[in-house]
Design a protein around this nucleic acid. Structure first.
Length: 530
RNA sequence: GAGGAUGUAGCUCAGUCGGUAGAGCAACGGACUUUUAAUCCGUAGGUCUCGGGUUCGAGCCCCGACAUCCUCACCA
């Protein structure tokens, strides 16, 4: 039995019901503003649903098939050649018995006949509800349906006269009332702010959004599969750091009460994963959230998902092969081919990706010899950079970021960076000014960053110190991580390490031009209610 | 942090020169048993983001605030 009486659900419905219809005299919309009137009408129907003996908030509903699977049973419909085109009477059909559940997204009332489209996360299908076919009880219940309600149905899968695959309903189940009005049925939500704040509505009503986020899941799952297939193990490092290291970024700060110490949300996974290399976990990765207290734009969100992988006895070339494999497999996992659409154009992910050196690309895009410090400085001045007192590598890199990176449509591995801007990277044998590092650029975006990891504790300590000298004192990231250096003193195997920005990779693999399209709940200022 | 754009009904959007606030969808009432953006008739729905100012009169002009978007800055 349903222990529900109207009073459980009736907040304060100003209208009254006679003969099941709202009487104009006591119209709940009377004097109410638009939104309130819409909700009042829905609450009134909710009350009637309870009166009819149904729980407006539903309960467990077993045995229903995903709509996508139901649609695939179309070929089970048998048609007997008894149709009569002249009278419009459809031919006799026999289809499989179906139980489905979903949200009402379209409704067309046609006298003693209602067509409803319900949707679940696998698809959408039409329902046929005829007054004479479903009986009085079901028909009364159907009068209480609004767009957005969740219902279940039992019926037979057949086709209408126009050939539309349809569940001819025999019994209705009420699963959940929607008190709020959904967006316009064909325009959906277009206000980007509403789409982000009310992602639940965006997922239901904006074309392609649900598919995009499911595809994100496929990509992440594929990455785990690829790594696991290569015998990498996944671990979980701490997200609360007393020293936020492994990258240069401003951290979020917080505080632990019992220990009474300041803490930082992690800005990278690197330093703890390398400690695990020391500890003998020879192939290790973490796929998790990092936090950087910096600006927000179409390519940056304050919290984002990072993959970092470390492989003992590898180097940055092993990481290049792995990066390519991870991306190619991810594309396959989403059911796509190597040439992916991107805006008006496309990106060709056919391996092998281009591999070019930093110097090569510098020369190519600036026409200046990267080894000619004076010429590079002159170019920097021309662009408008302040070069006074700066290390030539820093100047060169500023020019590289300004003039080269945007041009790298890629995918292209940029190899062999100036050592002085890579404090965690091993130097090339015999060429201490070059670091064994690559970054993968696609559409001007840095998607991956990898090193042959520096495992010389003395050099690491020196580079930390040198880095500190150039940092502002209040910059909390600029702290020597003594424990990390101590770990290196116990011997970290030569290794390759890789970081991939998952959100950016998902952008590229889902043709999404902003990072907020691939993050379910991007950071927004809190909304003020009331 | 700087500059620009936007903010009107639940949703999507018009709103001319400063002169009574508009449409579609959704809602409510009515007709309709093969519709599919159903159709048709009728009704109702507004703190024009918020606060000041100018004006006889402001959705519109001016100032400020708030939010979002874009560009730039920041970002190993």
């Amino acid at each position: 039995m349903f222990p529900f009486t109207s009073t459980h659900f009736n907040r304060e419905t100003p209208g009254t019901i006679r003969n099941g219809k709202l009487m104009a005299k006591d119209d709940p919309t009377d004097g109410a503003s638009g939104g309130d009137a819409l909700e009042a009408a829905r609450r009134e129907k909710l009350r009637r649903i309870a009166e009819l003996g149904h729980d407006p908030w539903g309960s467990r509903f077993d045995g229903h098939a995903p709509i996508g699977e139901i649609r695939a049973r179309e070929n089970e419909i048998e048609v007997e050649p008894t149709g009569d085109c002249a009278t419009g009477r459809p031919p006799e059909q026999h289809g499989p018995a179906i139980r489905a559940a979903g949200r009402i997204v379209l409704q067309r009332n046609k006298g003693k006949l209602i067509f409803i489209d319900i949707r679940d996360w696998t698809g959408q299908i039409q329902l046929f509800i005829g007054k004479n076919q479903v009986g009085e009880e079901n028909w009364e219940l159907a009068q209480c349906f609004d767009l957005g309600d969740l219902i279940g149905v039992d019926g037979e899968l057949k086709r209408t006269k126009t050939g539309e695959l349809t569940i001819f309903v025999e019994k209705l189940h009420f699963l959940t009332k929607a008190l709020a009005t959904p967006p316009a049925k064909h325009h959906g939500l277009s206000d980007p702010e509403l789409r982000q704040r009310m992602r639940y509505l965006d997922l239901i009503h904006t074309e392609g959004v649900l598919q995009r986020f499911l595809r994100r899941t496929q990509i992440v799952q594929s990455i785990r599969n690829t790594l696991s297939g290569d015998r990498f193990v996944e671990v979980e490092g701490p997200t609360l750091h007393s020293i936020a290291g492994g990258a240069a970024a401003r951290p979020f700060t917080t505080h632990h009460n019992a220990l009474d110490i300041p803490l930082y949300l992690r800005i990278a996974l690197e330093l703890h994963l390398k400690r695990l290399l020391v500890g003998g976990i020879e192939r290790v990765y973490e796929l998790g959230r990092v936090y950087r207290n910096e600006g927000i734009d179409p390519r940056h969100n304050p919290e984002f998902t990072m993959l970092e992988v470390y492989q003992a006895y590898g180097d940055y070339r092993s990481m290049m092969d792995l990066t390519e494999k991870i991306i190619v497999e991810a594309i396959r996992a989403t059911g796509q081919e190597a040439r992916l659409p991107w805006g008006d154009g496309e990106i060709d992910f056919t391996p092998p990706f281009q591999r070019k050196t930093y110097d090569e690309l510098f020369r190519e895009h600036t026409g200046v010899d990267p080894g000619d410090a004076a010429a590079v400085a002159a170019l920097a001045e021309k662009i408008g950079f302040d070069t006074a007192g700066k290390h030539p590598d820093i100047i060169r890199n500023e020019v590289f970021e300004e003039k080269v990176e945007d041009q790298l449509k890629g995918p292209v591995f940029v190899m062999d960076y100036p050592a002085s801007i890579c404090p965690l990277t091993k130097r090339k044998a015999g060429r201490p000014e070059i670091a064994e590092r690559f970054e993968l650029f696609i559409q001007g975006m840095e998607v991956a960053n990898a090193y042959t990891e520096l495992n010389d504790p003395d050099l690491q300590e020196e580079l930390f110190t040198r880095q500190l000298a150039g940092q502002a004192e209040e910059d909390s990231m600029a702290k020597m991580d003594h424990d990390f250096v101590r770990a290196l003193r116990h011997g970290m195997p030569p290794a390759g390490g890789l970081g991939i920005g998952i959100d950016r990779l998902v952008m590229l693999l889902t043709n999404s031009q902003t990072i907020r399209e691939v993050i379910l709940f991007p950071l927004l200022r809190p909304e003020t209610f009331g």
